[in-house]
């Protein structure tokens, strides 16, 4: 079974040289730490930056320079600032190659729910609806089951949707899966996890074809 860092490391392997990538809050943010050295990847922060760098050194924090999670950050060489309309313009125009975000639920047809739990305080969708509606490729980092042990990979999402038929790939603590027109296709097992475990943790339609390899994570 993978921990959060394991999920981030596995997702980092999906990033290709030359990609512009938008990372959501939580596990997706950790992915930045595992992008292979020497690979040219530019991180987009939807509040108006291409070329997001690491957190600043203590004492060098700049209130004017934050990421979409409102954390102080730095820029890297070749960065560019822009306004919020331009930022979502480049997202809508599909210039960003890959969006990585978290989810509460994903359905077998690629619907995603990650912004609202009815009855609880609603904080808002932020940029998530724009990102999922336009991204060329969306990878979801999530837990396979909730705290009660119930599957979050469903036939149909129960929570209010963020976007429809948009998720392409899911990486959980148990597995890597593609979302296909036929349902969730199991691609890889996490170390020490059996196909049976994944079957039991997946409520939506699961496609298992041939031998399912174990993930390779450095």
């Amino acid at each position: 079974m993978l921990d959060k860092i394991g999920i981030a490391k596995r997702i980092a392997k999906e990033i290709q040289d030359g990609f512009y990538v938008n990372l959501g809050i939580g596990i997706p943010t950790l992915v930045a730490n595992y992008i292979p050295k020497g690979m040219n990847v530019v991180l987009q922060s939807e509040n108006g930056l291409l070329g997001m760098g690491p957190f600043p050194f203590e004492g060098e924090e700049n209130a004017d320079l934050i990421n979409a999670g409102k954390q102080t950050i730095t820029t890297v060489d070749g960065s560019a600032f822009f306004d919020s309309a331009a930022s979502f313009g480049m997202i809508r125009a599909r210039k960003v190659h890959l969006t990585i975000l978290g989810a509460m639920e994903v359905s077998e047809n690629g619907d995603i729910a990650n912004w609202k739990i009815p009855g609880k305080m609603v904080k808002g969708m932020g940029g998530a609806m724009d990102l999922v509606a336009s991204a060329k490729n969306i990878i979801v980092a999530m837990q396979h089951v909730n705290k009660e042990g119930e599957s979050k990979l469903l036939t149909k999402c129960e929570l209010p949707l963020t976007g429809v038929r948009c998720v392409k790939k899911i990486v959980t603590e148990l597995a890597v899966l593609d979302v296909t027109p036929q349902g969730f296709r199991l691609l890889e097992r996490a170390p020490g996890v059996s196909v049976e475990q994944i079957k039991n943790a997946t409520q939506g339609r699961l496609i298992i074809e041939g031998e399912i390899p174990e993930m390779v994570i450095d």
Binding site: S84, S87, M121, G126, M129, D130
Partner: peptide, 20 residues
């Protein structure tokens, strides 16, 4: 919000920026 004193309309961030 919960007491009904405040009205809130939540809209996607890109929609907000683009409507401006």
């Amino acid at each position: 919000l919960l007491s009904g004193e405040l009205e809130v309309e939540l809209i996607p961030q890109g929609t907000l920026a683009t409507r401006c």
